[in-house]
């Protein structure tokens, strides 16, 4: 079929489709538009206005400070730290989750015993609320009572026992471990679904050519899951930028600011310290990063699928 005929056909189909339901759809999308535009666009616009203020949110005195909040932001060491934490956090959690999720998905596609039980165990953390698990993790990583240090001592590795959350060096890695615990289930489910789509003939052919398990995985299965990996990379980046629950629940951004993220910083500034203007300015930075992140990833995605 030539391109012209395709064009006329779709044109005809479009016209036909239009003829079918001539009713205006505007009233149908109106409730959704009111909800989303009224709340989100309003809030984003209001954030822009707030970012030029020095205001605590309730007092009648509102001071206009122009770009002062943004100037302060540029010199704020905590923001730079938070950005750095976000980057390391993203790279590490994405790499580990992808490796683990992919391996587990491949294992559960093999003929092994108790597959459903394993699947449930891996996926349960995804369903549980971080807020519910927060106290457990504070205990788990604690110096004396935690299951980790107790276990290390039990097998004679006393020297490795450590106050994980009190040491700035191990606090951020601990938060990463918890995040990986929670999200590997999701990574796993997506890879599991992607692997079901790979044609058995391809695997069969690889085996006939004498490829072993690892070779088949690397040359057939892994490329077959490419779309999923890219989707997970986007998801992980946005997730890293959004990070709030775990660091706030487990370490409150500390010790010092060792686990501070943009999210915890905005909450601390805007709500805890009543610096609404400064919190709004940091929010705008986060918003711009999130938008840039998703555009960048979409572009990469388009290019790689071409």
């Amino acid at each position: 079929m030539t391109q012209a005929t395709v064009a006329t056909r779709t044109e005809a189909a479009r016209k036909k489709g239009q003829k079918r339901l001539q009713h205006s759809g505007l009233p149908w999308i109106l409730p959704a538009m009111i909800l989303v535009v009224g709340l989100i666009y309003y809030s984003v616009g209001y954030t822009g206005y707030l970012s030029t203020l020095d205001w605590n949110g309730t007092s009648p005195t509102v001071k206009h400070v122009g770009a002062a909040n943004f100037v302060q932001l540029l010199h704020d060491k905590v923001i730079r730290q938070a950005l750095w934490h976000t980057l390391i956090f993203y790279v590490v959690t994405f790499t580990v989750q992808t490796t683990l999720g992919f391996t587990l998905a491949a294992l559960l596609h093999s003929k092994l015993k108790l597959r459903t039980l394993h699947k449930v165990i891996i996926f349960v953390p995804t369903v549980l609320a971080p807020a519910t698990m927060g106290p457990t993790f504070r205990l788990m990583f604690s110096a004396d009572d935690g299951i980790i240090n107790k276990g290390l001592r039990a097998i004679g590795l006393d020297s490795l026992a450590h106050p994980w959350l009190a040491d700035p060096k191990t606090a951020l890695p601990s938060i990463m471990v918890v995040t990986i615990w929670q999200w590997t289930g999701m990574t796993f489910i997506l890879f599991f679904a992607a692997m079901s789509q790979i044609e058995p003939e391809l695997l069969e052919a690889a085996r006939l050519d004498g490829a072993g398990n690892l070779r088949t995985l690397w040359y057939v299965v892994w490329p077959g899951c490419r779309g999923t990996t890219i989707a997970l990379a986007i998801l992980g980046l946005i997730g890293a930028l959004k990070t709030f629950d775990w660091p706030w629940l487990i370490t409150v951004g500390g010790p010092g600011r060792a686990t501070e993220f943009l999210g915890t910083n905005i909450y601390r500034e805007a709500i805890r310290e009543y610096h609404l203007g400064y919190g709004a300015a940091v929010s705008l930075v986060l918003l711009v990063l999130a938008v840039c992140g998703s555009i960048l990833m979409t572009v990469v995605n388009r290019r790689s699928t071409k």
Binding site: V44, Y46, G57, K242, L262, I266, A270, A280, L287, A290
Partner: peptide
């Protein structure tokens, strides 16, 4: 609005 982090809405929603 798909990828908007909810924390961005905190300051305006609070006010």
């Amino acid at each position: 609005a798909l990828t908007l982090p909810e924390v961005v809405l905190l300051a305006p929603l609070f006010a």
